Amino acid sequence: MPLTFELDPRIGPALRDGVLALWADVSNAGGAVGFVPPVTADDITPEWDKHLAAMNDGRTRLLVGYDEAGAVAATAFIANNTHRLMRHWVWLYTVMVHPAHQGKGYGQDLMAATEAAVRGFGGIEAIRLTCRGGTGVDRFYASCGYKEVGRVPGAIRVAPGDDRDDIVMLLELH
């Protein structure tokens, strides 16, 4: 059954708890979403608070995918570029699909829903994201139409002696 997507959902305790649980589950399954396992929802809460502040200020928007039970199963945070010369593109952050739902095409669905949402913003010409090298996720984004436009070798230190490339990818919205 496909996910149901909602842009800018009402933020409340259930949504917060759902996003935090998703974030912890993705992180603990080895997902490259800003943390290294093991993590708990409490570990992630300060980062959620930063995202929430950006949403409250209108700098970031949240796209949530709900599964058939109504649980948070996927997210993408879409951040406006505030630099006056770069407002024609947005950043995509914290793209997640719950491990229990991976392999069902939901990642492709999330990326398509994100692209559709951004196209609806008006005046946006591209979506930019970064991803952690060594995970293979860059191949997934490429399958969604994103092209690698830059790479910073060893920019992400996962652990001592385990540095990964920071890969910059872009989807042009022609």
Rank of each mutant, 00 (worst) to 15 (best):
A76F: 02
L92N: 06
V39S: 10
A71W: 02
R119M: 11
G122E: 13
E68P: 08
G103I: 12
A73Y: 03
A74F: 02
V90S: 01
V149P: 10
D57L: 05
C131I: 06
G31R: 03
D25A: 14
C131Q: 03
G105W: 10
Q108V: 07
G31C: 10
I127D: 10
R59I: 05
E47Q: 14
G122F: 10
D109H: 05
V137C: 03
A76V: 12
V36E: 15
L52E: 05
T75K: 06
V26S: 11
G70K: 09
K104D: 06
K104A: 07
V72N: 04
C131G: 07
T130F: 05
A100S: 12
N56T: 15
K104T: 05
S143T: 13
H83E: 05
D138S: 13
P37L: 12
E148N: 03
V97M: 02
T94D: 11
Y66T: 05
F77A: 02
T82A: 06
T40F: 07
G107E: 06
N28Y: 05
G123F: 14
V90H: 01
S27V: 10
E148D: 09
M96R: 08
G30L: 15
H101M: 03
D57W: 01
A100F: 00
D42N: 06
A24T: 11
Y66P: 07
I156D: 03
L85T: 14
T40L: 14
H83I: 07
V149T: 15
A126F: 13
I44Y: 09
H101L: 07
A53S: 14
V149M: 11
H83W: 09
H98S: 09
Y146N: 02
I156G: 00
V26M: 10
V118W: 03
A100P: 00
H98T: 06
G31Q: 11
V97F: 03
P37H: 13
R84H: 10
V90P: 00
V95D: 00
G107N: 03
A54C: 03
A24E: 14
R132A: 13
N56F: 02
P153K: 13
C144N: 04
G122I: 12
G145L: 08
V137F: 09
A29S: 15
L63K: 02
R132D: 04
P153I: 06
G133C: 12
A126T: 15
P153A: 15
G136I: 11
P37S: 14
I78L: 14
G120W: 12
A54Q: 08
R119Q: 11
G150V: 15
C144G: 06
F35E: 07
R128Y: 15
I78M: 00
P99D: 08
